[in-house]
Nucleic acid binder design. Sequence first.
DNA 1: CGTATCCATTGACAAACATCAGTTCAATCG
DNA 2: CGATTGAACTGATGTTTGTCAATGGATACG
Lengths: 118, 118
Amino acid sequence: MPVDLELAPKQKRPPGEPCCDPVVYPDIERAEAERMAKVAKALGDPIRMQLVDVLRKHAGKVCVCELVPLFDLSQPTVSHHLKKLREAGIVGSERKGLWAYYYVTPEALEEVSGWLNR
Amino acid sequence: MPVDLELAPKQKRPPGEPCCDPVVYPDIERAEAERMAKVAKALGDPIRMQLVDVLRKHAGKVCVCELVPLFDLSQPTVSHHLKKLREAGIVGSERKGLWAYYYVTPEALEEVSGWLNR
DNA sequence: CGTATCCATTGACAAACATCAGTTCAATCG
DNA sequence: CGATTGAACTGATGTTTGTCAATGGATACG
């Protein structure tokens, strides 16, 4: 997992010879990066950031009809952002009659959090 | 900062009346979300995720010429990703003669980390 | 039944993005 | 100086994204 780069001071190499030996990235590292990048990408929009923030503050489930008026956006656009968060595994949803309730599922965020705290 | 949403059980509202009172988002919250979204967006690509990961593992500074062969990408593309990370304030760089060295500047990541640990 | 409400989906469009080939620029070496 | 090297920038191209207007599907109410 650690890529063990050579960090020797650089010196100009003879012509033709490559600068450094290619280092192979273990696939496990790659898969982890892809999972976390997917989560980070979903958080990479201020609206979605605030959506997650609100959902996190309310430990329970929040109705979409309460989320929409928080933003100066159309309802379909908010719905679109919630879908992105769902696809990234950051939130889950549940329908009850006419209403849909969203809530945070912490696992996805925890992997990123764990990496950052490393 | 807490948005203090009404979470009363939903009931169908009389026609014309809005579902819920609009809640005003404090600007402070908004600005924070924008800063963190910018950082998250920069991390939202597997290549950049791995770049940051490598730079973090090597507490010191890493030469671009060592980063490029880690990925199956052209040098300009890696340079482009590094620029994104620079613009997000996640990494800094320093030139020494022909070579450029990159390193993580922890502040940006720390804000996100702090939010996640909240 | 018909109608109103909540929410998701579709289609469209401009903006942003990831990538590469080609180029530029600065620094080094001979 | 002239040639070479590391790294950034430019232009082009195909893809993804954020947004809205319009629509659709389901549920509830009268």
